[in-house]
Amino acid sequence: MNTNEYKDILVFAEVQNLKPAENSLELLGEANRLRNELGDNTRVLAAVLGSNISPVVESLFRFGADVVISFVDDKLAEYRSDLYGEALTRIIEKYKPAIVLIGATFTGSELAPTVAAKLKTGLAAHCTELKINDEGNMVQVVPAFGGKVLGDILTPNHRPQMATVKAGITQKIESRDFTGTIEDFQCDLTGFGDRIKITGRQTELAKGKPLHESECIIGGGFGIGNKENWTLLEELATLLNGATGCTRPALDEGWSQDEHAMIGTSGVAVRPKIYINAGISGAAHHTCGIKDAGVIISINKDANAPIFEVSDYKIVSDWKKIVEAVVTKLK
């Protein structure tokens, strides 16, 4: 394969509720950052699929797409692995990007390996960092063993180099000055979409603000003790216009009802400006999801809790007294 034929960076722009997914916008930011490492003639392409994509095009430009590749087809109204897999593959075959970035959403996590298999190229999952090495190849840092180990993955001889990235890992760049062009794309989807049929849909809105959109996150773990105590954390989060996040034990105990609120290896990675947590001991499973937080303040009654090692501020105390005091003052 002549890897030189492949140049641009393509981001799969996922549409959720008629809006571009935050995760995709973050990846447009990351694509712009990588472009600086690759050279200015690299373009950032955003591929968007659907039956009506006009509501999202403008924001794709605003967040950094040079070209929006628009594939409008009624068959693409809703995501299905076979249709989207084929459509995105055909787009990539035509545009020959060097790099394809896909958000590790439920959709993206299925779509990415589908497309990689069709193209017989490499894919690195849930990358925590992307960089370009001296040979101009993308180095993809991926976690393994629940975040205990990080490893570099390269796809040196195949193109495109594909990566999925979870929400909150990379950063959006927004500018009103960004402009770009729309290019329509069409291909024949006959024969696709016949074997998978959508028969229903239940919408279940995540409670509170989505974690990755929150500038302030209040985290709680097993040390919170019970569900009643948990509401105190929620009260603090509400006062700060933030969100609550949790560890797996707190989710398993049912204190936090929202499974999208789990932070860490098997949950989401977050990068709030400030992360205040209570009753979290600091298992690697959790801490690898908070490493990009701005400031980390941890409250734990155990002075030796490992969470303190990854905290900016350490408060050895009964968390309840502290949180109650903060809530009182904020009110």
């Binding site: 990689a116 570099d152 390269l154 796809t155 303040i297 990854v310 900016d312 350490k314 502290i322």
Partner: peptide, 28 residues
């Protein structure tokens, strides 16, 4: 395998770990 493994390492997450002490009100 199109992908090849490179370097592996343990995540580094060092922070300053400054202790805040005082009464709950002072800490708040």
């Amino acid at each position: 395998s199109p992908t090849q493994p490179g370097d592996i390492y343990s995540p580094k997450m060092g922070r300053k770990t400054e202790e805040i002490t005082g009464s709950p009100e002072e800490i708040a």
